[in-house]
């Protein structure tokens, strides 16, 4: 027996409400983030990830307030991401009660932010989020590129090489989302998950595409992920966290029951 694989429900939050779109459109309202976080805490989720997709400044104040309320009620690790651009943004979220902060686009524009924040706050609280899309090379060999702006803008960066660089700069964890799969319920992109978990020493959270419990199992056993993240299967009551854990345990995966 050893370290358990983690199950992480994800709250995509816009203007103080949990939403979840399919391929970043078709947003459905899933409810109040504080209530939902408390429910997952009670169900035995191993962590909670809170991704702020609000664009406006006013909305971001709401986010800080929501994070504070969740941190008062939920005694499992909380990761907050979305719109984190500066060391001050990271400090604001840590002070609001986040245990880890996820950096995405800002790391691409300024990789030194990862080094600086890891040195200042410790690697344990710096998560780098990678949004990858499959773009095979001319000979058809699999390759994954990082995209920004909800998967619309290519960066030219190779996702695996980027993960290695982020780990070297001091990231404590990688949150890997397949932009091809996100919201589709067709399962993780296991190719990129496996490629990145094999390339780096820090933990990897697989994200994007979970539609059933076999997908969670595959992310761990085939993708080699240390944790699996899912949103809609939990939000809309298709499965509970205990059901997911029991299913994974029955397939030989070590989980916290």
């Amino acid at each position: 027996m050893g370290l358990a694989k983690r199950i992480i429900p994800c709250l995509d939050v816009e203007n103080g409400r949990v939403v979840k779109g399919v391929n970043f459109v078709d947003i459905r309202d899933a409810g109040d983030p504080v209530e939902i976080a408390i429910r997952y805490n009670e169900q035995g989720a191993d962590e909670i990830t809170f991704l702020d997709i609000t664009a406006s400044h006013e909305g971001r104040d709401t986010t800080v307030h929501t994070v504070e309320k969740i941190a008062e009620e939920v005694f499992i690790p909380l990761t907050v991401g979305g719109g984190i651009r500066t060391v001050q943004d990271i400090r604001t979220m840590l002070n609001a009660g986040a245990d880890k902060v996820s950096i995405n686009t800002a790391a691409i524009h300024n990789p030194e932010l990862v080094r600086e924040s890891a040195e200042r706050f410790g690697s344990q609280c710096i998560v780098v989020a990678i949004d990858a899309k499959r773009v095979d090379d001319v000979e058809g060999r699999p390759r994954w590129e990082i995209f920004t702006h909800g998967g619309r803008r290519p960066t030219g960066l190779d996702a695996v090489a980027w993960a290695v660089r982020m780990a070297e700069l001091g990231a404590g964890e990688i949150l890997l989302t397949s932009m091809d799969r996100d919201g589709t319920k067709n399962g993780f992109d296991l190719g990129v998950t496996r490629a990145i978990t094999e390339a780096i020493e820090i933990p990897v959270i697989a994200s994007g595409g979970v539609g059933n419990l076999d997908h969670l199992v595959d992310g761990i056993l085939l993708g080699g992920a240390d944790a699996v993240l899912a949103a809609s299967i939990f939000h809309f009551g298709e499965y509970t966290v205990p059901e997911a854990k029991a299913y994974m345990a029955a397939r030989g995966i070590e989980v916290r029951l």
Binding site: K5, D46, Q124, E201, I202
Partner: peptide
């Protein structure tokens, strides 16, 4: 690890 598998550092998560 004891069974030869590679362990990630940091030690992050729920352990017994």
């Amino acid at each position: 690890g004891a069974d030869g598998q590679r362990l990630k550092v940091p030690h992050m998560g729920w352990n017994e």
